[in-house]
Simulated assay, not measured.
Amino acid sequence: MTSGTSFNILVSDDDTIRVSQMGSTTTEFENVLDNARASLDEARDEYRALEQSHTVPEAIVESIAELEHELEELDAKLEISEDDIELVQQTETRVQVLSSVLSALRDRQRIGVEADTERLGYEIDRIEQVQTDLDLQLGDIKKKYSMLQQLVETERHHKAITSERLSIGTLEAEISDIYDTLVDQLSPEDAVPVYSDIARLLLDDIHEYLSGLGEQNDRRTAFASDLAKVKQLLDEAESKSNSAGKRSNDAYTALEGCRMLHRSISRAYAEQSVAESLVDTVRRRNLAVQCDLEECVEAGDAETLIEQISSALTTEVRQSATERLKQLLIEHDGSVIRTADATDLDRSTILDSLAELLDDDEVADITVEFN
């Protein structure tokens, strides 16, 4: 048996066949390209789960299409060089940054939905313990709540926001109607512990969320006045120093305050979580951003980080597009026509890009050849 060179036969999605030496640059290129495609698919799934319920920065949305275009251009290459491997690795890094940003935004959505779901659970469980004529009404709410929990458990958090029948907002409104009915069904004396018990459970969560905020996060103190007022009302409602009617009113007012604070502070906690996740992404990917990372974490400033990462990502994608065009032109001896014929770039796009490169002194000269 004679020894010889082993080859790989690689077939891309468009049926283009590449023959490469085993362990060659082409094999490495294909592996990185496949990983980048998988990461972009994950990013697209994250975006689809966000687009109906949360605003995603425009630059992030644009990057999805731009990175898809990058991967298609890279996949169209027939001869692979070491420079191509570097290009595809850079593209993979940008895709992973994009995926990390969208994943962090999904976490923000998840934290908010799970906090709301837990709050509704406290209310339903405590109201269920009361002997009233609300069994039928409460039974329907419990059924919807069970379905809402299934959405959360199966990580379909966006459905818990957008669903007309099972949304958190719908259940909140129906539970508010229950409270209105309780006024007629319970004596003020019996209503106080119902309102108070729910408010105390919410306060426990609120303090846990607050403890998770950064030291310089303004939201640590922004709600201090409202929290103090809520606690005072609860103490007065439970002290029995006033009439049952006033104590019932105080307890319900405190409960309403806790419901609003629970929502607001859980969102602040979600923002803090996003900030920490994004800073970790910036550091791991060595991304150049124009902000102080430590300050952003301590302040829980997710918005600044999202803005900076979006800007850096867009800039790098555009720079990469320029580098790819330069390489394509070099491969085709500077010919615009041959470059256009070999890619999906049209001639006008190439000429516009060349004009920009000429203005930026990236191109020494442009030669026109007449027929």
Rank of each mutant, 00 (worst) to 15 (best):
Arg324Tyr: 07
Leu328Arg: 03
Ser53Gln: 09
Glu331Ile: 02
Thr349Gln: 06
Gln96Ile: 03
Thr132Glu: 07
Ala224Asn: 11
Asn242Arg: 15
Ala254Gly: 06
Ile80His: 01
Asp344Phe: 02
Glu86Gly: 06
Val317Pro: 01
Glu79Asn: 04
Leu261Pro: 00
Ile127Thr: 06
Leu10Lys: 00
Gln149Met: 05
Asp344Cys: 00
Ser12Ile: 03
Ile9Thr: 06
Ala199Pro: 10
Asp75Pro: 04
Arg318Phe: 02
Thr16Gly: 05
Arg219Asp: 00
Glu28Ala: 12
Leu261Trp: 01
Ser277His: 07
Ala38Trp: 13
Ile265Trp: 03
Phe223Asn: 03
Thr322Glu: 03
Gln131Asn: 12
Gly169Met: 14
Val32Asn: 00
Leu186Asp: 13
Asp41Gln: 15
Gly169His: 14
Leu202Asp: 03
Glu46Asp: 14
Phe370Gln: 13
Leu287Asn: 08
Arg44Asn: 13
Ser196Gly: 07
Asp333Leu: 15
Val11Ala: 06
Leu98Ala: 05
Ser320Cys: 09
Ala251Arg: 04
Asp361Ser: 15
Val192Ser: 08
Phe7Gln: 09
Glu295Arg: 11
Cys258Met: 15
Arg220Asp: 11
Ala199Gly: 12
Asp133Ser: 08
Asp184Tyr: 15
Ile265His: 04
Lys229Ile: 03
Ile64Met: 13
Met1Tyr: 08
Thr253Asn: 10
Glu295Ile: 08
His158Gln: 15
Ser63Arg: 02
Ala355Thr: 05
Thr2Ala: 12
